[in-house]
């Protein structure tokens, strides 16, 4: 019982006192302290992702077809951590390693989407309905609003593209943002009412 109640009480007490001290300048020191505590506690929880990742890949070591990949990942992970702890992240070797791996790979992996988006344009963007057609036409105008060739072909393209971005798009995104904000608030309220405990995970 207490295994769920104590965490629940903590979230209510911390949350409501945070709101209150943010509202009353006299006791704002409490909020400033909690801000700092939040940062410190997240910093010390930083290993959690790496542990989950290691667990998955240590388990994979038993599967021959995954062995080489999981070994590589584990070596890359722990090699980086050990090197960083010995050298600090400012060490020369660490910096070289980092610049050789993360910097190009992050971008290269994401840039694959440039290829996929091009084939998607050919294969899936079909004017199947009025709605899909509206989407496609808006996409074309905004695309050419973004690059110089649009204005070079016809001066109207950037004007229409900007209008689509500024007016209908803003209206749609505004309503969606409002809905999302209401939804987020309702979730927070459910936390404080004790109706939402999924964040505590499963189990008793």
């Amino acid at each position: 019982m207490y295994r769920r109640t104590i965490p629940f009480i903590i979230s209510i007490v911390i949350g409501l006192s945070y709101i209150l001290s943010g509202a009353l300048p006299e006791i704002s020191a409490w909020k400033n302290l909690l801000d700092k505590w939040f940062q410190i506690s997240t910093a010390f929880a930083v290993l959690i992702g790496a542990i989950s990742l290691s667990m998955v890949h240590f388990r994979n070591l038993r599967r021959p077809e995954r062995l080489i990949y999981s070994t590589t990942l584990i070596i890359a992970l722990y090699g980086t951590v050990v090197l960083g702890l010995i050298q600090t992240s400012k060490g020369e070797l660490y910096q070289t390693w980092y610049n050789m791996t993360i910097v190009p790979l992050e971008a290269a992996i994401l840039s694959q989407i440039a290829f996929y988006i091009t084939t998607a344009a050919f294969r899936v963007l079909r004017m199947r309905s009025l709605e899909a057609s509206l989407m496609l036409i808006a996409a074309v105008f905004v695309m050419f609003y973004n690059v110089p060739v649009g204005a070079a072909v016809w001066q109207g393209i950037p004007v229409i593209g900007k209008w689509l971005m500024d007016i209908p798009n803003t209206a749609a995104m505004r309503a969606i943002t409002m809905g999302a904000a209401l939804g987020a608030s309702a979730t927070a309220i459910r936390v404080f009412l004790g109706l939402e405990r999924s964040y505590l995970g499963g189990g008793e």
Binding site: A43, T72, A76, I102, I109
Partner: peptide, 28 residues
């Protein structure tokens, strides 16, 4: 490709840890 991808996942997780420890946990 798969190998390089796994290097990336490992290094970026490692770097997240190192920079948090270096820039925040240790000085605290």
């Amino acid at each position: 490709y798969r190998l390089v991808e796994h290097i990336y996942v490992g290094v970026s997780a490692g770097n997240g840890i190192v920079s948090t420890i270096d820039n925040y946990a240790k000085p605290t």
